[in-house]
Computed example of a mutant assay.
Amino acid sequence: MRTTTNLVTELKTVRPRKAVLEMPEYHPPLAGRDALRLDFNENTFAPSPKVMERLRAVTGEELTKYPEREPVERIVAKHFGLQPEQVLLTNGVDEAIHLMCVTFLDADDEALISTPTFFMYDVNIKMMTPHLRKVQAGATLEFPFERFMAAITERTKLIIVASPNNPTGAVVKREHLLAIAAAAPHAVMMVDEAYYHFHGESTMKDFATAPNLIVARTFSKAYGLANLRVGMLAGNAELLKFVRKTGSPYNVNGVALACLPAAIADDEYIAWYTEQVRVGRERMMNGLRELGVPFFFSHANFVLMNIGPKHKALVETMHTRGVLLRDRSTDPGCDGFVRITIGLEEHVTRGLDALAASLQEIEWVPTV
């Protein structure tokens, strides 16, 4: 008779692919977030009132149907001045990254990123190939353009660059992004513009001159739809045809698809929220200057600061004061760094007040 012990023993012989065994894991610290959430770069308020109105109007019959992505892709494409075949909606940018890697990377191919950056690039690339080349930014955390260009080889098949970058808030010049795409015509280049609304510069108008360029956007940040999980890829229709082939036909849920048109149509709300972030970001950086805390100039809805050896103590103390921060010390070149999200004016005020009190409580003094 088969026993539980025998089954466990047998299952130990069932192993996943080597790449899965060796790929890193991402464990977001989502538990216990019942505080002011200045840790995940989310919208700290709410989506557009028009989204809430559409959400309340979702019917039971709508929930019984499989979601239809294509009609909403046509609406999104028109909004961004693109053709429907140039847009693919995804289950957040996380799925977009996954699909790019699955579509374009073989086991012997190389992928290229600059670090520090969004950790999910690392996770998804290494799921497909061990040949991930990382170009580390210098002490200023600015994008290392010249060294990045020099790292492109004939084996490079996928390049991913975030602008603005997470966790640094640094941007890459548009001309540099286009130069990278031109230098690697044999590779697909994805520009992750998740934080586009807080900076305003995009390569989405450059698809005609950069046929190997694909842009990723999210509706989680400025639009406030993080819980609905919806993002998009935009670019060359021929390239997206292959990406579409690797994805699920029902990857984006129907509630997200119902709400997305309302979200993108409310330009007034987006203008208001992004202005809140712009003003709040300036206030936060000025406040950090007054506190003597070193930080990196940001073009996103967050600021990365250098706390040094007391970074863990600061995060813990802020939590006791009802404010969550994100410790980025394990990111390459970020030892001692902590990130704070920028949102509404009142949230920036609470964040700065808690920060000043917490720094005093942990007896922090600048070390750089």
Results as ranks from 00 to 15, higher is better:
R229P: 00
G231L: 05
G231I: 01
G231P: 15
M232S: 08
M232G: 07
L233G: 12
A234L: 08
G235D: 03
G235S: 04
N236R: 03
E238R: 14
L239T: 08
L239N: 05
K241E: 09
V243H: 02
R244P: 05
T246M: 14
T246G: 01
N251W: 10
V252N: 10
V252H: 12
N253H: 12
G254V: 00
G254R: 03
G254N: 04
V255R: 07
A256D: 07
A256P: 15
L257K: 01
L257A: 10
A258W: 04
C259V: 09
L260F: 02
A262Y: 04
I264K: 08
A265L: 01
D266P: 09
Y269M: 06
I270Q: 13
I270A: 14
Q276G: 08
Q276F: 09
V277Q: 07
V277H: 08
V279L: 11
G280W: 10
G280L: 06
G280E: 02
E282S: 11
R283T: 09
M284R: 06
M285Y: 03
G287M: 08
R289H: 13
L291D: 13
G292V: 02
G292Y: 07
G292C: 02
V293H: 12
V293E: 13
F296D: 13
F296N: 11
F297Y: 10
S298T: 08
S298D: 13
H299W: 03
H299A: 15
A300C: 06
N301Y: 10
G308E: 01
P309H: 00
H311S: 08
L314T: 03
E316W: 02
H319A: 15
V323S: 02
R326W: 14
R326G: 05
D327H: 14
S329I: 02
T330E: 15
T330A: 15
D331V: 03
D331K: 12
D331E: 15
P332G: 03
G333S: 04
C334G: 04
D335G: 11
G336V: 02
F337G: 06
F337I: 04
V338S: 11
R339D: 15
I340E: 13
I342D: 11
L344M: 14
L344R: 13
L344V: 14
E345F: 06
E345K: 14
E346V: 08
E346L: 10
H347D: 12
T349R: 15
R350F: 07
G351S: 03
G351L: 06
G351N: 06
L352Y: 05
D353L: 07
A354C: 09
L355V: 01
L355T: 00
A357M: 07
S358T: 04
